[in-house]
Simulated assay, not measured.
Amino acid sequence: MDTLKVFVLALSMTERQAFAERCGTTYAFLRNVMYGQRKPGEKLCVAIERLSSGIVTRKHLRPMDWQDIWPELGG
């Protein structure tokens, strides 16, 4: 989750909260994902990838099982 952490912590607190809201979650939940306390669901992963302009990818967010969920992403 280091990529997500670096991306999010570079934002101001207001931007963090707005980013989380645009992703369909709360900043509290996003913070839990950043620190490995929660696993992001598939929809959240896609939203984060899209709204971060590809800086944080689904592969970053689900390194152990992304290929099972999104096989079309390839290797």
Rank of each mutant, 00 (worst) to 15 (best):
P71T: 11
C45R: 03
R62H: 05
A18T: 02
R50D: 13
L61P: 00
R31L: 10
R31W: 15
D65E: 12
I69H: 13
M13H: 07
A20Q: 00
G36W: 10
G41N: 14
E21D: 05
P63S: 03
Q67K: 11
A28S: 11
C23K: 09
L61I: 02
K39G: 08
D68F: 08
P71N: 13
P63R: 01
A10T: 06
A47E: 09
I48K: 12
M64P: 02
T57W: 03
L4F: 08
T3N: 09
E72Y: 14
F19M: 02
A18N: 01
L61Y: 03
T3S: 04
G36L: 08
G74Q: 01
K59L: 06
Q17E: 11
L30T: 03
V6C: 07
G75P: 10
D65Q: 05
T57V: 03
A10K: 15
R22Y: 00
L44Y: 10
T14D: 14
M13I: 10
P71G: 13
G74W: 01
R31C: 09
V46L: 13
L30F: 05
C45I: 05
M34Y: 07
D68T: 13
V33I: 15
G75C: 03
T57S: 07
A47K: 13
H60V: 00
A28I: 09
T25L: 11
R31G: 02
Q37W: 10
G75M: 07
G54C: 10
R22K: 14
F29W: 06
G41I: 03
W70N: 11
S12H: 05
M1I: 04
K39Q: 12
H60M: 01
L51V: 06
A20C: 04
R22P: 03
R62P: 01
E21S: 12
A47I: 02
I55W: 01
L44S: 13
M64L: 09
A47S: 15
R38V: 02
M34N: 05
R58T: 05
T14C: 05
K59G: 04
M34R: 12
L51F: 13
T3C: 01
A18D: 08
L44R: 07
Y27T: 08
R58C: 08
L61V: 04
K39Y: 12
A28L: 06
R16D: 00
M64D: 14
A20L: 03
K59N: 02
T57K: 05
C45E: 00
L73M: 14
L73D: 12
G36Q: 06
T57C: 02
F19S: 04
V56T: 00
G54M: 02
R38M: 07
R58S: 00
I48F: 09
D68G: 03
S12L: 07
R31T: 01
A28Y: 04
E42R: 14
P63H: 04
H60C: 01
R22E: 14
M34E: 14
